[in-house]
């Protein structure tokens, strides 16, 4: 493995909320093109880990290198780096006062200085890719959950990021809409996007994950490619967890 290929390197990441230690020294490397799937019980620190990657949570100690830059360093401008890290939330978080199209073009126009025409053409291409071109002028409240999440994904993609972070993107969806969102994510993975996905969808983890990470009580207990990880779990905690979710 050459260092050139490492997109994100997490070095002894710790995070506490007050007296509660949530992350207790996480080390991880995410290579370009990897799909890292993070699993673990509720409250184990998965979201906190993911949110530390783009500094939505400020780490208490440790470093995160993104494209070779330590983004936990105060002297860097985090906003520049966040443009390259798309994020998708459980609750979609579309901007309700803007049309779908505007949701997609705001960032590219204001931050990437694209012209309106450029940004809109690009947005329409992305909307077309997820089968929602006809909803461009709708407002988020007029969409179903699955549609909202697909829009949220392409909103992040419109910034042309180098990595996509997903925090349980299908957990707030009605069961019949889970598939359409997972399909978009699978396509994204096939296209070579680097992804870090927190999810309870074990089928997805098995199918597209390149690196499965089991987090328990703030540490990575076990990690490996899906075949080994699921067929041959080593730690008792993981075995117990898998027996419950599979």
């Amino acid at each position: 493995m050459t260092t050139d290929n490492v997109l994100i390197k997490v070095d002894n990441l710790c995070k506490s909320f007050g007296d509660t230690e949530v992350l207790k020294g996480i080390n991880a490397e995410i290579d370009k093109g990897d799909v890292m799937v993070v699993i673990g019980a509720s409250g184990s620190g998965k979201s906190t880990f993911l949110r530390c990657l783009n500094l939505l949570e400020e780490p208490t100690s440790g470093s995160i290198y993104f494209e070779g830059v330590d983004i936990t360093d105060f002297s860097i401008d985090i906003n520049i780096h966040r443009q390259k890290m798309g994020m998708v939330f459980q609750q979609f978080n579309l901007f309700p006062h803007m049309t779908v199209l505007r949701n997609l073009t705001l960032g590219p126009m204001k931050l990437l200085k694209q012209t309106k025409e450029e940004a809109e053409a690009n947005a329409m291409r992305l909307l077309d890719r997820v089968g929602l071109a006809d909803r461009a002028n709708a407002y988020p409240s007029q969409l179903s959950g699955g549609q909202k999440q697909r829009i949220a994904i392409v909103r992040a993609l419109a910034m042309n990021p180098d990595v996509m972070l997903f925090d349980e993107p299908t957990s707030a969806l009605d069961p019949e809409m889970v598939g359409e969102v997972l399909e978009v994510m699978k396509q994204l993975a096939r296209d070579g996007m680097t992804m870090v996905v927190v999810t309870h969808e074990m089928g997805f983890a098995r199918e597209v994950g390149t690196d499965i990470v089991f987090v328990d009580e703030g540490v990575i207990v076990e990690q490996g490619p899906p075949s080994e990880f699921f067929e041959n779990p080593k730690s008792p905690r993981l075995r117990e967890f898998l027996s419950k979710v599979l």
Binding site: N54, L56, N79, I80, R82, Q83, M85, G86, M87, F89, Q91, N93, L94, F95, L106, G107, K110, L111, A152, R155, A156, M159, L165
Partner: peptide, 14 residues
């Protein structure tokens, strides 16, 4: 909702 703030910051807005 705090999620609005986070979504915007995650896009890269200051």
């Amino acid at each position: 909702d705090k999620g609005q703030f986070e979504a915007s910051r995650s896009i890269g807005f200051n």
